[in-house]
Amino acid sequence: MTEIPKIALKGLRKRFGSKQVLQGVDLNICAGESMVVIGGSGTGKSVMMKCILGLIAPDAGRIEVDGVDVTHLKGRALAAHQARFGMLFQGGALFDSLSVWRNVSFALDQSRKGADLRAAAIDNLARVGLGAEVADLRPSELSGGMQKRVALARAIAPRPEIVFFDEPTTGLDPIMADVINDLIVELVRDLKITALTITHDMASVRKVADRVAMLYAGRIVWHGPREGIDATGNPYVYQFVNGRAEGPIKMAVRGG
């Protein structure tokens, strides 16, 4: 393990008001691997992703990409950093004033001809199992699952070297969820991307992960290869993977 990780988080901390969300996250993601982060709702998984993307400024700690510190980038350097990533947002974040194909081709070179961009958008829609007939619809005319797939097509359209998937399968039926999981595996294998996926869906973990990390109480409490999640004696992982109400993870049921 002397190789420089693609992404390295070192002691990452972030709090909102009095709420300490990330309390020193350490995580390495190697080039070309598919890392999956699991963890309960509200543990800061999405915040961690947004810190890496430079959308949220961390309070302390370091973020390195290819060994280069990218924690406090600004202006053009930040834009160049962000251009290396594709991001599937948890809620899709499609532009509701634009048609589906305009959304999907958004990050492509806009000086290209309209017909050309539209064709590229339709290619990418096909990758996520959507036909050309949705190209001219508005996002609000699609079902939740279709919106998610359009958002996925948009994230991968410019062929970024790193793609983040924030809960790619939530809200999809099991079959479509499997299609999306296959797609992530395919992207990592064929396009040689580095993938970071956040999920609660154990089927997804088993299918797409090379390695798994578990975030709890603002820290990575366990990480290891995919096979490790069933063998580990770690009580947090055991409770999460098996979906038990009893265990070291306490859920605040009444918003306490």
Partner: peptide, 17 residues
């Protein structure tokens, strides 16, 4: 609305300021 639905964050990840 664009802010709370993360569309503004999405712009930044889509090579647009």
């Amino acid at each position: 609305t664009m802010r709370v639905t993360e569309q503004i964050d999405a712009l930044a990840t889509l090579r647009t300021d």
